[in-house]
Design a protein around this nucleic acid. Structure first.
Length: 559
DNA sequence: AAGGGCCGCAACCGCGATGTG
DNA sequence: ACACATCGCGGTTGCGGCCCT
């Protein structure tokens, strides 16, 4: 879709272009010195000039291009054209499945850091990745699917855990500049940024200007459509097709198209256990909520996950097939059932687990977002629970203790979501929507039906992607574990919170928060938390070691 | 076959960061 | 220390093509 080729037909300049190949009076702007700088699509002639110029003078000093080459383009435009289209070693064509997977993984850790993501994808530009992601988001918005495959969440968790345990924060990994670059400050940065301005205990942060994913949420995901799993703007023509693709029913249930917990249960279990706050109280493995819990916890430490050298695996093989036209991109779907008739490779991809060590992260960004955004949001939500944990916790007491540890975090979140309702959210989006980014579809496959929070809480009229499969009570019973972890309200049954003492296992929570904060701050945090654990006072703003962290700081401040 | 609408891509825009005098 | 220039990044927009009715 090159406008250059459109304009010039691969070098065959139009008459106008021949006469004035570099100027287009109708599409220009006043540049330096009154020179009319051309805007819009580049022509082959312009490309040639730019290439020639770069060959002679090298990259940089782009403003000089216009001055010395006769190219009526601003330096900015030249740089962009060169970087995105003309520079050598650019990989053209659709993203390979491997690249797609990498992008998702990277985004889960970096958020909208396209340039950094591009660094992991040789030959790919940030613009390319950005466009890809945006279209992917839109697609998933329409489909009402979580942005991140559960495997990505799990992997992120694993990597972060590994990163922590390997002492990456101490700079033991010197192989990756990003790690070194960000280790020392990224966590606070992220936390501070995300929490900035949140000077009081609120379930939502008034502004998250620096976290790109927040913006993303605000603009796209954050809209009720996303939260509602089905935007009202969904083109009616598209619904059936995408519904079919994304919620295949050929297998009889969502289980065919979506991951089931038991499939990654092992990983989640392992990760959770290794994490130290796994499901120690859960005697019943079937009640694990690896994803929901793991996401949260793992996300908390995501930004610490600079465990190893960057080793982009982008040995991506160039595929000429458009990324959305892979007939069969069975990357090993997370379902054991035959791959659904996906129409879009990304959807295929989303169902495929990332390869172990597909890339090693430097991903923790000082502006980390993506999953981290979600976790921060959840942390904030967690922090707000203190205000009304009593009722909820008492309500939760009906649930068996074994389910507590798994779902506690979610419980709290859900509690908040129910309490506050999404309309309050300054993010303009449902907390559940955020959650849905990282939370897999229910093992029971009924989450789409059971995820009313977005719909109910936001008050939007959006409806979930039409579910082709009606669940019978028998199926529900059979498919669903005793506790439906994908449904936050189902996780309310928690005695994690005890009215009298706050978190039932506060040390666990403290560890989780410490993980989030990273080693740099973990010590301080634990210290502070331990100091408050007995008093159940939590940190006031004044005592919080870090300004503007009330949401986190006061997580321990429970009645 | 035609029209409308959506999708995907390329390019632009605005802003912050960085470098330099 | 300040101003200016340049660079880089992320978000947004416009347009052509495709798909569906």
């Amino acid at each position: 879709m090159s406008r250059t080729t459109t304009d010039s037909e691969d070098g065959l300049l139009s008459k106008d272009q021949i006469e004035s190949p570099l100027m287009d009076e109708s599409n220009g702007g006043i540049g330096n010195g009154g020179i009319v700088l051309k805007k819009g699509p580049w022509t082959s002639a312009e490309d040639a000039i730019l290439v020639e110029y770069v060959k002679k003078h090298g990259e940089g000093n782009w403003n000089a291009v216009q001055k010395h080459s006769g190219l009526f383009r601003c330096g900015k435009s030249c740089r962009l054209r060169w970087a995105n289209h003309l520079r050598p070693n650019l990989k053209k064509g659709a993203f390979t499945p491997e690249e797609e997977r990498l992008i998702v993984e990277l985004h889960a850790k970096m958020g909208n850091k396209w340039a950094r993501m591009a660094a992991h994808l040789p030959g790919r530009t940030d613009n390319e990745i950005k466009n890809y992601w945006n279209t992917r988001i839109k697609r998933r918005q329409r489909a009402g699917l979580p942005l991140y495959p559960p495997e990505v969440c799990l992997q992120a968790l694993q990597e972060s855990q590994q990163g922590q345990s390997s002492g990456a924060l101490n700079g033991t990994d010197t192989a990756h500049h990003d790690s070194l670059q960000t280790n020392s400050y990224e966590i606070p940065d992220v936390v501070f940024d995300s929490l900035k301005g949140n000077s009081c205990v609120l379930p939502y942060v008034p502004e998250l200007p620096d976290i790109s994913a927040s913006g993303m949420l605000m603009k796209g995901l954050g809209s009720s459509p996303y939260c509602g799993f089905m935007p009202p703007t969904m083109h009616r023509q598209k619904r059936p097709r995408e519904s079919t693709a994304l919620f295949p029913t050929s297998g009889g249930s969502y289980k065919d198209g979506f991951p089931q917990f038991d499939q990654f249960e092992n990983d989640a279990d392992r990760v959770a256990r290794s994490y130290g706050l796994s499901f120690p109280h859960d005697p019943d493995p079937t009640t694990k909520s690896p994803l929901s819990f793991g996401v949260i916890q793992g996300s908390h430490s995501l930004s610490n996950g600079n465990s190893s050298a960057s080793k982009p695996t982008c040995g991506a093989v160039k595929l000429e097939l458009p990324s959305l036209q892979y007939p069969e991109t069975d990357l090993g779907s997370w379902s054991t059932s035959p791959p659904p008739p996906l129409l879009e490779s990304i959807d295929n991809f989303i169902q495929s687990p990332p390869p172990v060590g597909a890339f090693e992260s430097d991903c923790a960004s000082p502006r980390n977002s993506g999953l981290l955004d979600a976790l921060l949001y959840e942390a904030k939500t967690l922090g707000s629970t203190k205000n009304h944990s009593t009722d909820k916790s008492s309500n939760s007491s009906s649930v068996t203790p074994g389910e507590v540890a798994d779902s506690s975090t979610l419980n709290v979140c859900e509690t908040e979501w129910e309490e506050y309702g999404d309309p309050i959210s300054p993010l303009g989006h449902s907390a559940t929507s955020l959650f849905s980014e990282c939370t897999p579809i229910s093992a029971s496959g009924s989450s789409l039906e059971e995820v009313p929070p977005a719909e109910t809480l936001t008050g939007s009229n959006v409806k979930p992607e039409p579910a082709d499969h009606a669940w019978t009570p028998e199926e529900q019973k059979e498919a669903s574990p005793p506790l439906d972890y994908t449904r936050p309200d189902a996780l309310l049954g928690s005695d994690w919170l005890e009215p009298s003492t706050g978190f039932k296992d506060q040390s666990i929570m403290n560890d989780a928060i410490a993980s989030l904060l990273g080693e740099d701050l973990a010590t301080d945090y634990k210290h502070m938390a331990s100091g408050t654990s007995t008093s159940n006072q939590g940190w006031g703003l004044g005592s919080c070691p870090w300004n503007n962290m009330p949401a986190v700081c006061q997580m321990t401040d429970l009645p």
